[in-house]
């Protein structure tokens, strides 16, 4: 009898062990980025961060995304496909903060954890949020520009329509910074254009209207091209006009080296991807660990651009 009980106990332990080992399966997360275009270094670096977290937390992450950063329809489609696969969590970098709301609701309805990175959705509830503080980026850009300008300088802001939502947030940050710390600097205007060429043309027009303009904040790296091309054409002013941009494209890096740009405010894409997956893993393993993480943007100038940590941000090391 005693023996029998002993055996029973042992086999029970055995069964429990078997169950326990079976339970250790890898959680599946589907990450839908703004784009999965391998030429978009920013998103490839986000993917690197995702892979790093994937390895560290021992989960499976499937990275997807539309080819174009503006393809709302495709991203919604991808999101619906992901819901059908019933992963443990979906990480979404929304192409559009409004258009993606209904699809995001569906994720929640399906009982799948939703983590939104890069930009917050306009409405609806998400489990966790990891995003760059675009307002803060705007503030930093405003501050770094204002520091290099004489009092009573005039500046303009140039944006691209496709990056409308982010540009608005950045603009808000710039205005906040200037109103709080540098009230003597005047924002002459804020312009939204549709392309590089349009920006180029617009810049020329603005400069002919406002000859005393001494600072431009360019909200988008594509707009930067148009602006700088225009500035090169207006040779007399190109050195005195301070340019502050965002994102840190190769073009902007060169402009920084050349001294044509005063500063670039950049995000940390690796951290964005890494922290997004970390938040997802936290949520899966502990359902009440909802969090909102704000990533601090970094101001890069000519002087600090080759410092090791900034090199890592500016020059993503992507193996192709």
């Amino acid at each position: 009898m005693v023996l029998f009980l002993l055996l029973l106990g042992l086999s029970l332990i055995l069964i429990l062990r078997a169950i326990f080992t079976q339970e250790h399966r890898q959680e599946k997360i589907i990450a839908i980025l703004k784009t999965n275009d391998i030429r978009k270094e920013f998103w490839q670096t986000v993917a690197q961060g995702i892979h790093s977290a994937e390895k560290e937390f021992d989960v499976i992450v499937d990275i997807r995304g539309p080819l174009s950063e503006t393809d709302i329809e495709e991203q919604i489609e991808l999101l619906r496909e992901a819901i059908a696969e019933k992963p443990d969590a979906i990480m979404l970098a929304p192409v559009d903060v409004e258009a993606l709301v209904p699809a995001a609701e569906e994720v929640k309805k399906a009982g799948i954890r939703l983590i939104v990175i890069d930009m917050a959705l306009q409405a609806g509830k998400v489990d966790s949020l990891v995003m760059t503080d675009h307002v803060d980026a705007g503030r930093k850009a405003g501050a770094v520009l204002a520091q290099q300008l004489k009092p009573n300088s005039k500046i303009v802001m140039m944006s691209l329509m496709k990056n409308y939502q982010v540009a608005l947030l950045r603009e808000q940050g710039v205005r906040e910074a200037l109103e709080a710390e540098y009230p003597h600097i005047e924002i002459v205007g804020s312009y939204f254009n549709y392309s590089e060429e349009e920006t180029y043309a617009k810049t020329k027009v603005i400069f002919s209207d406002h000859k005393d303009l001494s600072g431009i904040i360019v909200m988008d790296s594509i707009a930067t091209v148009g602006v700088t091309e225009a500035l090169k054409g207006i040779e007399l002013v190109n050195k005195s006009v301070k340019l502050v941009g965002f994102e840190g494209s190769i073009n902007e890096i060169k402009l920084l080296e050349e001294g044509l740009m005063a500063a670039v405010v950049v995000r940390k894409p690796f951290n964005l991807g890494y922290l997004g997956i970390k938040a997802a893993v936290d949520l899966i393993r502990n359902p009440h660990s909802n969090s909102t993480v704000m990533l601090e943007p970094v101001v890069i100038t000519q002087n600090n651009m080759y410092e090791p940590e900034n090199q890592k941000i500016l020059f993503p090391f992507v193996i192709r």
Binding site: S52, K268, F270, N271, Y274, E309, K312
Partner: peptide, 16 residues
Amino acid sequence: GNIIYHPQQQLLYSGI
């Protein structure tokens, strides 16, 4: 003690 190579170098720099 300077990091030459680290798969998560960015995270180390950011203090994460």
